[in-house]
Write a protein that binds this DNA or RNA. Structure first.
Lengths: 151, 151
DNA sequence: AAATTATACTTTGATGTCAAACTAATGTCA
DNA sequence: TGACATTAGTTTGACATCAAAGTATAATTT
């Protein structure tokens, strides 16, 4: 038995992310949001938090390529969750805006977020959560410092 | 400022996974493995550890749909890393086997794994790592118990 | 033993994702 | 002001991914 990969934190991270995504999709389906994937949820959550954003800002916030965001946003437009509004100050850019329909999902959405966090962190003390989160920040920093890249 | 999402562990998990994948792809490119994505690496690592496996076993180990594994394996075959060997005991199934070429990458591969772990966990004590890993196990259990699903 | 059910893998179709090329608007600098 | 570079967003092409349907073999049941 090689010593290398146990405890295998990268694998654990990957599995957890998968579990999170599965949970989100399942719950979103339950509240009637069909044909929605986690990235769509990411976009909606981001807009719930920040209001209207340009595609570029969205792309940065959800950490996906601009072409990916174009595709995701256009799908959400087709499904009636978003509209685009021209940016008068810069004709190249457009604001992504939530529709009424999207806003009706705001509260259930936040509920899902909350209950996922509850499940995720159940039986962990506030202290534990803080420690865990600090470890995760540490890992991110480790990578960013290594690559000398900024975000 | 809403209280909800800070500290946002799901987001942290997702970002870290992305950083891990970026790191792996970059390093694999450096050692001359082109056109490789993390899933391919997953397959190779798994075979390095376990030797020959059937597609079904692989699919379980890397936690991806069997049709996905078919596609990934066939790409790796096309690129000369894998071959298929019939399972004489069950004509439905086939073993996925590493080629010589793949085996030449075994050591560099393990090096990359190791150095990634080193970077990831730099400046963390053995104790810290154990605690972190335990938290991650806890999170996985929280999800699995919630959904009453087995893995 | 024949019919049914289950299993291992492949194929197909849909979609998220990215990188690279493209378009249009803006900024810069000579 | 006019050439050049930069930027915001879209389009295109490649590919990972999954679910569902399809195919061939194995296991089970009657």
């Amino acid at each position: 038995m090689k010593k290398l990969l146990y405890c295998n934190i990268p694998k654990q991270i990957s599995v957890i992310r998968r579990l999170i995504n599965e949970y989100l999709v399942t719950e979103m389906n339950k509240i009637g949001m069909k044909n929605i994937v986690p990235s769509h949820g990411d976009i909606l959550i981001t807009l719930f938090h920040h209001g209207e954003l340009t595609l570029k800002q969205l792309s940065f916030k959800i950490r996906r390529d601009k072409s990916t965001v174009t595709a995701l946003v256009h799908k959400l437009i087709k499904n009636g969750y978003l509209t685009l509004r021209p940016n008068e100050e810069d004709k190249r850019s457009k604001y992504v805006c939530l529709t009424e329909k999207a806003n009706t999902f705001k509260e259930p959405f936040i509920s899902i977020s909350n209950s996922m966090n509850t499940i995720l962190l159940q039986d962990m003390s506030e202290e534990d959560k803080k420690i865990l989160s600090k470890y995760l920040v540490k890992i991110q920093e480790n990578f960013l410092h290594e690559g000398e890249k900024e975000d």
